[in-house]
Simulated assay, not measured.
Amino acid sequence: MTSEITLFVNPTAGRGRGARAAQPAARALRDAGYSVRTILGEDAPDALRRAREAVEAGTGALIAVGGDGLVSLALQAVAGTPTPLGIVAVGTGNDLARSLRLPVRDPAAAGRAAAEVLKGGGGRDIDLGRVGDRWFGTVLASGFDSRVSERGNRMGRLAGRFTYDAALLAELAALRPVPYRLTLDDGETRDVEAILIAVGNGDSYGGGMRICAGAELDDGLLNVTVVAACSRTTLLRVFPRVYRGTHLDHPKVTVHRASSVALAAEGLTGWADGERVGPLPLTAECVPGAVRVLAPRPPADRR
């Protein structure tokens, strides 16, 4: 493995934390004996192009310094290649980093952790979800949660730091079940009325909401959480439990596991890793061992 490491930086992540985080992360890697170069992009397509060029040139690792959006871009560059992905998580959600037990909002510690794994020649191979040519590491959302994201995206900065809260309240007021067609592993199609269906390679989204609690990053399967039609009162009662993952015990919630999941519904858009994927119908598949990450291996008794 080459000793040159590429830092892939989003200078705007976390209200500027991305730019500030690059220096201590780079310092930790250089202290460990690695040569470090930094790449930024003028916009997302340009950033992805530069990241892919670094991977094709044989960089020893691509280390994303930013939030979930930048990690998502980095996955598009490294998935299916031997180049490992490191994460210096300084965004607002940081769900993949949390699932991998990596430091969050501590760029020096994250840099040291990446260097330690590189020195040990280790890391771990994890699965990724894939929709068409788009890879995702955590959760594909559709329904109430994706509508909140869509509304928040349309609002832009009008509501400032309260954009998500404003979008959430607006969608609660307009809450209605959606008729879905759900197909697992090319089998029987289920017609279900649901508030949302989430497809998880990882267990959480939105900064720790464990919507697909129990999902493992290396089991070759996707976890599918279906929240059936329910009232606003029921949703508000169950919602706080999502942070502990205990919502899965509620009678309105069912869970499936499959290697391929097809979702169809009118008027819905899928979001994965906090990024817009596109309108349904969509088919997600689990690709085992699609990427190597600079993260410690999980304990043998995790299950």
Rank of each mutant, 00 (worst) to 15 (best):
T92R: 07
P82I: 08
N94H: 05
V90N: 11
P82K: 01
G66K: 02
N94T: 04
T81V: 15
L75M: 14
D68Q: 11
T83M: 09
T92P: 01
A89G: 07
G91W: 09
P82T: 10
L85F: 07
S72L: 11
V65A: 14
G66F: 01
V78F: 14
A64N: 10
L85N: 04
G91P: 04
A64S: 13
L75C: 07
I87V: 10
G91C: 05
P84G: 10
G80S: 13
L75V: 13
L75E: 09
P84K: 06
P84F: 08
L96K: 02
A77P: 11
V88E: 01
V71H: 04
A77K: 12
A79L: 11
V65T: 14
L96I: 08
L70K: 10
V71Q: 01
V88T: 05
S72G: 15
A64I: 04
A89R: 03
A77D: 10
P84Y: 07
N94P: 01
G86F: 05
T83K: 03
V88R: 00
T83Y: 08
V65I: 13
V78M: 05
T92D: 00
D95A: 09
L96N: 02
A89I: 00
V78G: 04
A77W: 15
T81Q: 06
T83S: 07
L75G: 03
A64C: 14
V71I: 12
V90W: 02
G66I: 02
P82M: 06
G66E: 08
A74C: 13
A74T: 11
A77M: 12
G93V: 09
G86A: 11
G93P: 05
P84V: 14
G93Q: 08
G91K: 05
G69C: 09
T83G: 07
G69D: 07
T92G: 01
P82C: 12
S72Q: 13
A79H: 14
V90Q: 09
V78W: 15
V78D: 04
G67K: 09
V71C: 05
S72V: 12
L73P: 11
L73H: 08
G67F: 08
Q76T: 14
G91N: 04
A89H: 00
L73T: 09
V71G: 03
I87G: 00
I87T: 02
L85R: 03
D95S: 06
L70D: 08
G67Q: 09
A77V: 10
T92E: 02
L96Q: 02
L85Y: 07
L85A: 03
L96Y: 00
P82Y: 00
D68S: 13
T81M: 11
I87D: 01
P82W: 00
G80D: 09
D95E: 03
A89Y: 01
S72T: 15
S72D: 12
Q76L: 10
V88F: 01
V88W: 00
V78S: 03
T81I: 12
T92I: 10
L96S: 03
A77Y: 15
G86E: 05
L75Y: 12
G67C: 09
Q76G: 10
L75W: 15
N94Y: 06
G66Q: 06
A79G: 08
Q76M: 14
S72Y: 15
T81A: 14
A77R: 12
N94I: 01
Q76H: 12
A79K: 14
